[in-house]
């Protein structure tokens, strides 16, 4: 089970706008974006470069607050415009998991320790954290690489460790920004299927920014962004030619 309330949407973003700069240099990255994602739902976020996908993801990830609008996660109001309604770092620690294009593993920690550290900073005892980290790495098929440093792992293995770290604290929401961009198609699909599996088994919501169309069938829903606006689209309506 995950860390968010079962009867509330995992994400409820209302009328989000995000503006960078001002005057002649003003850029509007998000225009009145409203988004709702339920627990156990796997959602793909598509769109060309500069459409605002990453801005939306980082806004929901509480690391890049919107200029206006509200964000609720698991029923908690967490951001009211740019103003935090909760301790954002503590909220991220307990309820959110992140995966990026690059694995962003800490280079001086082994695969096991990279997963373990996420739990230890969430006050899990080192012993329990180590045990669970080992289980997660086994679950993701990299248990035999647990003692290796990131530089000793392949790109796919590193990304699996990053997924394990994102799952470490059983978050209610996993945010992934082009997690398969550095992987071959086979590995990329494996990661996407992993998200779907995790979502089903742990009732976590997963929001994935992706350019990879080969695995869109894995998602429950696909959303498309363009010029800072969000619209829902059926997976079949997205063609590779429209993607960047």
């Amino acid at each position: 089970m995950n860390s968010l309330a079962a009867d509330r949407p995992a994400i409820l973003a209302e009328s989000l706008t995000k503006t960078y700069g001002s005057g002649n240099t003003e850029v509007i990255a998000l225009r009145d974006v409203t988004l709702k994602v339920q627990r156990g739902e796997v959602v793909a976020l598509l769109g060309p470069s500069g459409a605002g996908k990453s801005t939306l993801l980082t806004a929901i990830g509480l690391i890049n607050p919107p200029t206006s609008g509200r964000i609720h996660i698991g029923g908690h109001l967490v951001l009211d415009g740019p103003h935090p309604a909760v301790d954002l770092r503590a909220f991220r620690r307990k309820h959110l998991g992140f995966v990026f294009q690059r694995a962003n593993l800490i280079p001086f920690l082994s695969a096991l320790e990279n997963v373990q550290v996420a739990m230890e900073i969430n006050d899990v005892t080192p012993r329990a954290a180590k045990q669970r980290a080992r289980e997660l790495l086994e679950y993701l098929g990299v248990g035999d690489r647990a003692s290796h440093l990131p530089e000793e792992l392949s790109g796919g293995q590193q990304q699996r460790v990053a997924v394990a770290r994102a799952l470490a604290n059983e978050p209610g929401l996993i945010l992934a920004d082009e997690p398969t961009a550095a992987l071959d198609s086979h590995r990329g699909r494996q990661v996407m299927e992993l998200f779907a599996k995790v979502s089903r088994e742990r009732q976590a919501a997963v929001l994935v920014v992706t350019h990879d169309h080969r695995a869109l069938d894995v998602f429950d829903r696909t959303l498309e962004m363009e010029d800072g606006r969000l619209r829902e689209s059926a997976p079949s309506s997205i063609t590779p030619a429209t993607q960047h």
Partner: peptide, 16 residues
């Protein structure tokens, strides 16, 4: 710095 940013992203307290 990148690793510290990552630690902050996953919620590490300043004390860490």
């Amino acid at each position: 710095l990148h690793d510290i940013a990552m630690l902050k992203l996953i919620g590490a307290r300043n004390g860490v």
